[in-house]
Design a protein around this nucleic acid. Sequence first.
DNA 1: ACCCAGGGTGACG
DNA 2: CGTCACCATGGG
Length: 286
Amino acid sequence: MQESGFKIIYQNGEWLCTGEPVDLDVVFNCGQCFRFEKDAGGYVGVARKRVFRVRGIENGFVCSGSVGDEYFLRNFFDLEQSYRNIENRFKKDPVLAKAVEYAAGMRLLNQEPFETIITFIISANNHVERIRRIVRNLCARCGEKIMFEEKEYYTFPEPEILAGLTEAEWREVGTGYRAEYLADTVNCIAQGFDLERFYYMEYYEAKAELMKLKGIGPKVADCILLFAYQKKNAFPMDVWMKRVLKELYGFVPKNDREAIIFSEKTFGDCAGIAQQYLFHYMRSIS
DNA sequence: ACCCAGGGTGACG
DNA sequence: CGTCACCATGGG
């Protein structure tokens, strides 16, 4: 891993994080995270029970609010990893170069596993804006209220809380036919299905293990492994990525397995990061 | 009215 | 192993 050289300074009640250019519009709209909303002063959202505001500055960003400590920022914004270095590597591929140019300043966020699991079960066969609304409904109904800048925000509910929801109540939140999967998976986790082990588990084993949960197939498992467990070779193969392969690389795979093999060969060990640039780029030009 | 969305499940060969 | 209907919801 290439060091990014990020420096974090706490001054005047704010956390200054500088080291590489960061584009918050890309970070929060590239489809990895559904919990941060934009306003005149940047983005505000909740992660790991902390409510905070982020705004972009030259060569970095600034956070204010209940951030807590420096370690949280380093982890959440993946500050140990140099994305400038990755972007330069990706630029050798002419297609990726365009995606990187469009989405420069992207960073993968390290999100909380349980939240990521639930969110991406909801994401299946769904629209980004609708996923946002469903997650917002869920948090407002079951999360803990936190006041910030005179507004209400809600934490993502713990497994024990969501285990109390009936399938009908999951439907009321707007999850549709996924309600059955969600009720089952949440109960499984609340009863002890261990989520910590995936941090240390090898990618393929972790993927197979995650897919034992209802509502988690190959694609959703890859999203969870990429967005929560830092498995940067995980490559979520969704409809947009199939369009990328077909329209930008002229490759039409017979099935998902073939598509993933092509992607591994083309994008290497950081395929998941490449996927994120491509996902954002493909959606923008469609 | 029709098509689509960061797909997964279960049934059937 | 691969294929395929079906799934609830709302926006274009």
